[in-house]
Amino acid sequence: MDMLVDSFPMLLRGLGITLLLGVVSFVLGSALGALVALARISAFRVLRGSAIMYVSIFRGTPLLIQIMIIYFGLPQLGVQLEPIPSAILALSLFAGAYLSENFRGGILGVDKGQWEAASSIGMPYWRTFRRIIFPQAIRIATPAVGGRFIALMKDTSLASVVTVVELTRVAESIGNANFRYMEAFLMIGAMYWLINTLLSVGQGMLERRLGKAYA
């Protein structure tokens, strides 16, 4: 019990960092993913090709290696990033690759007749996208995107290898200090689980809201 009380401030700080990594990377990854999804369906071959390449690389290699390349590798090229920015960069790039596919699926999941109906009233391409396609694509993509957010929350634990003091790292040091590894890791395991339970409740609420018009 003492151990818990003593380490409480540390755990709280770790939790803060974990949330920071997860949320910021999700937001950046979503923005990146949206752009990549658009590139992927664009008429320009170069854009399409680059998008495909990006997704292939960042989905096809382990996140751990991406983090290590950015933190340990980039300094050799003269780019030195602090641990937290390194982790956020890697997590965003990684999430962006997956999210772009989720968004693309959402866009392609909208019935082709919607594009036709919008063009039949003379609506230009971008406005059609924004007003007609995007709101429906979001609804279709929500379950997959929510799943990605949850996965990303757990992936933040890999930031511990580049010395970011997030939950996993905190648990390690608590364990190292008093050999109470079991309690420390069970504790943070429960914390991850709690975060993700809240996230999936939020996702369910969002799905119900977006689905209202369709009920």
Binding site: G113, E116, A117, A118, S120, I132, Q136, A213, Y214
Partner: peptide
């Protein structure tokens, strides 16, 4: 104006 077989109303 165009009226489609499958209506194509904007569901949202």
């Amino acid at each position: 104006g165009m009226v489609f077989q499958q209506f194509n109303l904007f569901p949202h």
